[in-house]
Amino acid sequence: MTLIKHELRQSRTSFAVWTASIAFLLIVCVFLFPEMKGEMDSVRDLFASMGSFTAAFGMDRLNIGTLTGYYSVECGNILGLGGALFASLLGISALSKEEKERTAEFLLTHPISRLSVAAGKLAAVLIQTAAMNLLLLLLALLSVALIGEEIPLRELLLLHGAYLLLQLELACICFGISAFLRRGGAGIGMGLAAAAYFLNLVANISESVRFLHWLTPFAYCEGADIIADSSLDGGRIAVGMLVAATGVVAAFWQYARKDIR
């Protein structure tokens, strides 16, 4: 418990900044919807006729003149990319920062097992990810209510749920990598999140590269699919969670036997 509290305290500023930034963009985006809706007739045709760009963002299958369509494209990108970057950074720095900042020697000469250290740090990552998503969901619901639209509760819950799972998957993969690093890996974390994001855009463009969907968690966050099916893609999520579990197991395995220099 001491360790979890300490971890949360250490990263409270970064948590606040990331959450506030994503929340701000998300709310601004929602507040723009009434204005967009008025001009939507012309805009919709424009957005629907940009070829592969339209396909990349799923706008060929969504009507961005509706709140759910608009929200899943615009807000989905903010929440998706922002959340993915934050979760990846949390995961990648969790274990490696101790060696980078040379505090590992302090922490690991206390009577606490390596596995407990890893578990405490993982818990702190998961708590922060969950807390951020809960806050963002509440703010999203509130801002939709404020613009006077009816709240599409099921769709919003599904979308936010999918993004939470995506963040957990990326955080766990990065957590696994973190155990192998001796220095910070912010670049690796952000690179991984960005790669996953763009991989999904590419996979959306053409049928011939559709298989790339299996390589990126953004595939199960595709608003067009979630809203059309009114459910999440269980198969892809199962694969994602399996990958996440592998990351966690790798982290524990490596951290328990690692030489701290």
Binding site: T2, H6, R102, T103, F106
Partner: peptide, 30 residues
């Protein structure tokens, strides 16, 4: 480790903490 105390040759602490917090954290971890 619960019965030993260690003074490293190079000391590094978590940024932003007060001496009191570091001592409390160390005791808390024990």
């Amino acid at each position: 480790l619960s019965r030993a105390g260690y003074l490293p040759s190079e000391t590094a602490f978590y940024p932003g903490m007060r001496v009191r917090d570091v001592l409390k954290l160390s005791a808390g971890l024990r």
